[in-house]
Write a protein that binds this DNA or RNA. Structure first.
Lengths: 187, 187
DNA sequence: ATTTTAACTAAACAATTGTTTAGTTATTTA
DNA sequence: TAAATAACTAAACAATTGTTTAGTTAAAAT
């Protein structure tokens, strides 16, 4: 047919994701994307349509990247201990390569919470609702908790997870560990 | 001498602050500032020099706005109970007028954590260090805690406060309350 | 080998960004 | 009342944003 593409879309999206993850959407320019992705504007547009297209693909890629973590979490059956492990796993993903980028989804939530991009916001909200459901499910495994306590603790953990995601942009591994241990001390 | 200014700088900065608080720096344009502040670009520039000048003045104004809260906190002498009250006061400031804007400083930290604005980042970091010192001071009041525990708990509380600030962009008053109560359950 | 087709480079695009300037209006003071 | 001065309006500014287009290069297929 014709000339062959010189890059894999999955590869360049992975690079774009890291850029968006670190700097957010607005603070990432096409010029930065060109440099980081290693391809020309034309190629970016022909592959992803727009800057926003690159962004949504990056989010998709992030979700795939963290999918194994959720699968492991959903399959586990040790109750609260699983939630704690999920917290640790999340931190590992966030802090890989020694970076302090926080959670990409949480960062995006913070940046877009006042935007009018309802679709994106819905997506992020349903992610949190899903998380809460999983927490409730695991909390129920203990058997000894009443529903009211379970709901309260689930709310607490969702916020704690959100906070932790924000905090991984700031603090070091040791403090993060202390934080997680303290969080689960009376759950 | 000459014509009189038709606005008070403190007034228009207050309006600008609310805009930056809600949308962040990059997502706030001069056009939005003109509209919200109710004055012309020329006036903005003659009063504050630049968009960034408006921003730094907004931060200053935010600090003044929340100063009374810190004063109250520093003067208090009921230990952990004071910290808890400080958490509640912080939430009140963030959620005034039914808004969900989070903490202006935390938002700013998140937006600028990858920027090269070292002065601003230093400012925000020293704010956190100060907070931690205050927490340690209050934790010591209990008398029964050893220094190692105090440090761990202070670290925990700083992150919890940071997380709470991020979370007030998302959740409702009731969930926030649950979160605070749970946070202090075993401190 | 020639044609076809698609990915490449690079330049131009319109729109928006933050910023400055020129010209007008109003208030103060002498 | 007239001169001086500073705040106003509005237009132009250069630079950067995301996006598109024109022209070149290279790999398939006939």
């Amino acid at each position: 047919m014709a000339r062959k593409k010189e890059y894999l879309e999955a590869d360049v999206i992975d690079k774009a994701m890291n850029l968006f993850w670190r700097n957010g959407y607005e603070n990432t320019s096409m010029k930065m994307l060109e440099k980081e992705m290693g391809i020309n504007k034309f190629s970016i547009y022909s592959s992803f349509g727009s800057k926003y297209g690159v962004f949504t693909e990056s989010i998709k890629s992030y979700k795939e990247k963290t999918h194994y973590m959720f699968e492991k979490f959903e399959k586990a059956s040790n109750g609260v201990e699983d939630i704690k492990q999920f917290f640790y796993d999340s931190v590992d993903v966030c802090n890989q390569n020694g970076n302090e980028k926080g959670c990409f989804l949480t960062n995006t939530y913070n940046e877009f919470s006042e935007s009018e991009d309802e679709e994106l916001k819905d997506q992020l909200n349903s992610f949190m609702v899903h998380l809460k459901k999983l927490f409730i499910e695991k909390l129920r495994m203990d058997g000894s908790k009443d529903e009211d306590t379970i709901l309260k603790q689930a709310n607490f953990l969702v916020l704690a997870k959100h906070g932790l995601a924000a905090a991984t942009r700031v603090n070091n591994q040791k403090e993060i560990e202390d934080y997680i241990e303290m969080t689960f001390k009376n759950i």
